[in-house]
Simulated assay, not measured.
Amino acid sequence: MDTNNLLRQLIMIGVGTTSLVAEKLREVTDEWVRNGQLNSDQARRFVDDLMGQLNSEQGKFEEQMQRQLRNAMQDLGVPQQSEMDELRGRLDRLERKLREIENQLWK
């Protein structure tokens, strides 16, 4: 399972949804301005405030998804990248040491 790809797809869904909401929100507020229910400054502030809240919630959602994905991977026993890097380093050191011992035996 490519977790980076999964996370990227989830984020893109969130970004796409936010863009769609922003577009529809602007359409609605433009209609309100045309009907005289709001002036253009009120509409702009309304859109800015709502989009700020949506962006804040999206950031919280992304953090929560990352945390849940990390927990799920840990529960499944999938090693973290740092653990894999550490094991690779240990393996490299052991292979080097083995070559040194082999070279000493052949001399």
Rank of each mutant, 00 (worst) to 15 (best):
D41N: 12
R93W: 02
F61K: 06
E83C: 01
D75P: 04
R26W: 06
N35D: 14
S40Q: 07
L25Q: 02
Q58L: 12
L94N: 09
E62K: 04
D41A: 10
S82V: 05
L20M: 09
K24G: 08
G77C: 00
R67C: 08
L54G: 03
R67E: 08
L69M: 13
L98C: 08
W106N: 11
R67F: 07
Q66I: 13
L105A: 10
D41R: 02
Q104Y: 11
I101T: 09
K107M: 08
Q74G: 09
E95V: 14
A22M: 11
Q74P: 02
M84P: 01
G36Q: 00
L91A: 11
V33N: 02
K60Y: 03
N71P: 09
L54V: 14
E31Y: 11
M84L: 15
L25H: 04
A72G: 08
V47G: 03
L54Y: 05
W106E: 13
L50D: 05
R70T: 14
M51H: 06
K24D: 12
N39Y: 05
R44S: 09
Q80E: 10
V47C: 00
V21M: 00
Q80N: 05
D48G: 03
E102G: 04
Q66W: 06
R93L: 10
G89T: 11
E100K: 04
Q53E: 15
E100V: 15
N103W: 07
D48E: 07
L87T: 02
V33H: 01
F61G: 02
M51W: 00
D75W: 04
W32D: 11
A72W: 00
D85I: 02
N71Y: 08
V21H: 01
R88M: 10
Q80V: 13
Q66T: 12
Q104E: 15
E31Q: 15
Q42S: 03
E31K: 11
Q64C: 10
D41K: 05
S82M: 03
Q42V: 01
L94I: 15
M84D: 04
S40V: 15
G52M: 02
L20Q: 12
G59F: 04
M73K: 05
E62T: 06
L87H: 04
N71D: 15
K107C: 02
L91M: 11
Q37A: 13
V28S: 10
Q81M: 14
S82P: 06
K60R: 11
G77N: 00
K60T: 14
M65I: 13
S40L: 09
G59N: 04
Q81P: 10
L105T: 08
E83M: 05
R26Q: 10
L94R: 04
L38D: 01
K60I: 11
L76Y: 02
G59Q: 02
V78R: 04
K24R: 15
G36M: 01
K24A: 13
L105Y: 04
R45I: 06
F61W: 13
W32I: 07
V28R: 07
G59R: 03
R88D: 11
N39M: 01
L38H: 00
Q53Y: 08
Q104F: 13
E63L: 15
M73E: 12
K107T: 10
R96P: 07
L91Y: 14
V47W: 00
